[in-house]
Nucleic acid binder design. Sequence first.
DNA 1: GTTGAAAGGGTTGCTGT
DNA 2: ACAGCAACCCTTTCAAC
Lengths: 156, 156
Amino acid sequence: MGEAIELDETDRRLLRLLQAEPELTLREVGDRLGLSHTPCWRRLARMREAGVIEERRHIVDPVAAGFEIIVFCAVRMNGHSRAHLEEFEAAVGRIAEVVMCYSVSGDHDYLLKVLAKSIKHYESTVKNALVQLPHVLSISTSVTLREIKNTTDVPV
Amino acid sequence: MGEAIELDETDRRLLRLLQAEPELTLREVGDRLGLSHTPCWRRLARMREAGVIEERRHIVDPVAAGFEIIVFCAVRMNGHSRAHLEEFEAAVGRIAEVVMCYSVSGDHDYLLKVLAKSIKHYESTVKNALVQLPHVLSISTSVTLREIKNTTDVPV
DNA sequence: GTTGAAAGGGTTGCTGT
DNA sequence: ACAGCAACCCTTTCAAC
């Protein structure tokens, strides 16, 4: 998105407030910060412009929506040419059950987070699709047992 | 939150639409689905009640906010009594830089995602705090090199 | 399910500092 | 450049049907 910008303490307080209480109106935010709502709105617009803050998102709970299985996959590749990696990454982008993918340093090449309706769904659909991609050497799966914490909040 | 509920195809279309285009107004959503805005609102209220959909959240970009380092930590514990685990989990809840924590099956006990402003910040502040917690046996760190995908969207 | 309306938030132009 | 004021438009919400 936009250029890198400096955040002053008021910007950070604003972000903290909005992350902690997402349903606050700008007028309420202004009251808490000792400002009127307009400067708050302008600061937000500036931060949105710069890509610091994105559109407000509707958060769906995977479990309540029927995705009871959450697994992490560590993927190892057998070749690291640009073309190989791009092919894998494009495929990951197309698989909706893969909700997160980072390339990582260390023992593995990629770390993925995958949602599935059941173990069977994960094994037969998602893992199968991933293993069959070219240049994938191995996938080691960690099944999550319990969610302790999962937040989108950044500790600004 | 609420009780488990059944989602019909209209509910799922609604969720898909709102996840894909979070800024749509209820009237626009209604138009797309061939409904007026009121039933859309009623369905959303019901899903919110049931915990399927949460408050709309403001999403802050960690990198744009100065958190350039994202790491995953696999934590191994040396005791698995309820008290040990609860102590660790409570600590994790208090550390704002830890944005995600799952207990997992397999080689490790917990998998964490951590935001930090620098490697130094991660090592000296976050990792240090974690290692010093009682009953933590080892922490192995994977530094992320690049984000390929990271979405809150559930593939309903 | 629909229409219609009250309440109130987001947005913007203008003004003052 | 940044804050505040006032007004408009539009969304959310909730009647009544």
